[in-house]
Design a protein around this nucleic acid. Structure first.
Lengths: 151, 151
DNA sequence: GGTTCAGGTTAGAATCGTTCTCATCTGTTG
DNA sequence: CAACAGATGAGAACGATTCTAACCTGAACC
């Protein structure tokens, strides 16, 4: 479990150093709101957030940021490869801090997501892609609802 | 390839008999708009439509139907198991007339869908579903964009 | 053929998530 | 510290969808 945040024990709390690195690497100017949002997004393991939820969370953390900026930032992070969009529900867009190869459980009851590590997953029997095209991604979504599997 | 529409050659054109059967079986009163929409939806093989597109198509076919009714009908058909919702794009809802086991190609360029027959497909390595839940469906979406696969 | 009434349809308003506009602010550079 | 590109934010605009409330329709009965 890597922790970029505390490689050097030189101050005790440097909660923004990891976020700062990410922004620099992405060529995004490290502003207050981008730093703040990056901190929220990337400092607690893999997350799945909506813009609205992140905005609420930011306000709770006393970060002054508008919903418009949350949307902007989420898209900039996505373009920079820091986030990935997950489509499981029309009308709501989720952003995933895990950009690696993986898939998702979607809990229909409460609308939450959980990662399925992509390592062991294999989709067999897919036909060839229609000519002139290439696969940009294969998404596997396991939709789950309350109830015993069979019993 | 079953064809409910012309089991009896008793009239030549009975374009609504298939639609009528479906509505009856679903316990939906066969009104003009429901019959008309069912005809458009189910009489030309498997289709993927949005509400807006179906509405436009209905008007072109001189069926007097409002957008609200198109939405109502689409949801009633879905609840009745005549249609299936496909989520590939936040902000747009597709309805699929193929309710059988299958998956989808999604062409990012033009936003169209194509079925992938579910027969040969197998997803290996999925972890167990978190306790107290059951799988309601597994969706595989192959996102495709223009460009040579490798060359 | 008419009456009745539950259910279906509709236009338009309302809602939701998201994007846009443009005036203002910020932070880097000189 | 001046200047300017880039970032932010309030509110308007937007597209897809849902709601509301008044109005039809069609199956069942007279």
């Amino acid at each position: 479990m890597e922790r970029d945040a505390d490689r050097k024990p030189e101050g005790g709390d440097r909660p923004y150093s990891s976020a700062l690195c990410r922004l620099r690497a992405a060529g995004l100017r490290p502003t207050q709101q981008r730093l703040g949002l990056a901190k929220i997004l990337f400092e607690t393991g893999d997350r799945h957030v909506t813009a609205e939820a992140l905005h609420t969370e930011a306000q709770a953390a006393r970060l002054r940021v508008s919903l418009a900026t949350v949307y902007n930032t989420l898209h900039q992070f996505t373009d920079a490869g820091l986030l990935r969009q997950v489509v499981v529900d029309s009308g709501r867009t989720y952003f995933d801090t895990n950009t690696g190869d993986h898939h998702h459980f979607y809990f229909e009851g409460d609308g939450t997501l959980a990662d399925i590590c992509g390592d062991g997953i294999e989709v067999l029997g897919l036909p060839a892609v229609p000519g002139g095209n290439m696969v940009s991604r294969v998404d596997v979504i396991v939709r789950v609802r309350a109830g015993a599997p069979k019993s």
